[in-house]
């Protein structure tokens, strides 16, 4: 069961009307290392991971949906009042032809989201290493998005999301350490 909360995890403020940025930001909506892929990856792996780390996968997977909503908010705000002409100039003509103002799960190059972006091997170590890699790749994507953005308010939200990837990576690496321990052994600090 999931319960929706009627608020964003972090404020999203967009100060400049620049629909071109929406075209880039959509990478983190429906791209290979985006928030949708992350949420689906963790919430699927949790069924076959040792019980000690199910909670972590559940909680990080849930947080990823909050991040997906933040990205959606950015795209929504950047495009909602643009004319078709402006969207065309921003390189979103192809998007408009198929989806009008609707958001769609595809990457910055327009490739539709595919579940082949994510893996589930059923081997706890292999799965957690995929998760760590996914977090570092998402962190890198946020860096490139910050580089492409000159809206300081938008950059602020992207920096928040980037730092979350750093923390998630930290927790996944701790999960690996927990699984490396022998049964019953306490983690000593």
């Amino acid at each position: 069961m999931w319960i929706y909360e009627k608020k964003l995890q972090y404020p999203v403020k967009v100060s400049k009307c620049d629909p071109r940025l929406a075209k880039y930001l959509i990478e983190q909506y429906g791209g290979a290392d985006g928030e949708l892929a992350a949420a689906l990856r963790y919430l699927n792996q949790r069924y076959t991971i040792p019980d000690k780390v199910i909670g972590l996968l559940t909680d990080i997977g849930t947080e990823e949906f909050a991040h997906l909503e933040m990205i959606a908010t950015m795209v929504y705000k950047l495009t909602k009042d643009a004319t078709p002409e402006q969207l065309r100039e921003a390189g979103l003509g192809e998007h408009y032809a198929d989806h009008s103002y609707a958001l769609y799960y595809h990457n910055a190059a327009g490739h539709p989201f595919t579940i082949t972006y994510i893996q589930a091997k059923g081997d706890p170590i292999a799965d957690l290493y995929e998760d760590i890699a996914a977090e570092e790749k998402a962190r890198a994507t946020y860096q490139w998005l910050i580089d492409l953005t000159d809206d300081v308010d938008l950059q602020d939200s992207l920096r928040f999301l980037r730092e979350r990837e750093v923390i998630h990576s930290q927790r996944f690496r701790e999960a690996v350490e927990i699984l490396k321990d022998h049964e019953g052994e306490k983690k000593v600090f």
Binding site: Y10, Y142, Q143, I146, D147, R159, F160, L161, R162, E163, R164, V166, I167, Q170
Partner: peptide, 17 residues
């Protein structure tokens, strides 16, 4: 913590290329 995206200064990474 909210502004920086983490509760812990030791895990904070500033991205200013």
């Amino acid at each position: 913590a909210l502004r920086r995206g983490t509760l812990w200064p030791d895990l904070y990474s500033r991205y200013n290329p």
